[in-house]
Amino acid sequence: MSAFRLEATDLTRTFESGSQAVVALQSMTLQVGAAQVVCLVGPSGCGKSTFLSLAAGLDEPTQGSLYIDGVAIEGPGADRGMVFQKDCLFPWLSVRDNVRFGLGLLETRRSHGASMRRLREHCDELLDRVGLWPFRDSYPSQLSGGMRQRAGIVRALATRPAVLLMDEPFGALDAQTREDMQILLLELCREQATTVIFVTHDVEEAVFLGDRVLVMKPRPGRVVADVAVNLPASRDRHTKLQQDFQAIRGEVLDHLYQVMSNAEPSG
């Protein structure tokens, strides 16, 4: 039995485009412990989104496997939640119904009333926790971008997933909202002991959120560096100003520049 929450072994995904095979992800091996936050950074085409799709069960690997607590992933499941770049809330549902969408699906499959009630209360608590309780009956179109993304996170956490997959969720937000969201995310995930895989373009964000930052390179997509972020677990605005933080950010950037300069000539 695996001791890891999320484990990838020799994970490979190739796409056929015409006569050519594009290796989106090559032999990725990764072990992530419970409640760990792992950030993936790298240029376009490095396979970070491919990895998320595989972990979400939206796509199948060409080779290798992915496990959650030692069980191979076969399709999407309630043990994983996902937050997208666009909030992807259902516009015809109120905030509260959006957040409960996953629960509603679970309810039709199994009949465990007691734990369902508990999960529904959990949803309301989360809404309150992120300040959306007064807006529970609003439609997504009536909310700001930051509020929509908060609702998206709550929706993903509603079924108490072990792993939260995030695909550049804060990319479209303004700087201030973005920082608020980063701090909120860290707090929520610590409270729920959620493991997070976080894809981003922003190195500062990756170092701020991550316990580890994986740097990836394209063609073929693979991990070239695994940088440990040795900062205290509780982080706030001041963390980004610390020397340690800047040193780690510099290290990640060095890896990234190296990836970029190697990637360029081969075109």
Binding site: A78, F84, C88, F90, W92, G102, L106
Partner: peptide, 27 residues
């Protein structure tokens, strides 16, 4: 397609996606 993907990740099967996302969204 994003909404359909979101529903899939939340565990919806084909029929549920058709009923709860495509039908509702196109009404």
């Amino acid at each position: 397609a994003d909404l359909i993907r979101a529903a899939m990740v939340l565990g919806a099967n084909g029929r549920e996606i058709f009923r709860k996302v495509i039908w509702k969204g196109s009404l």
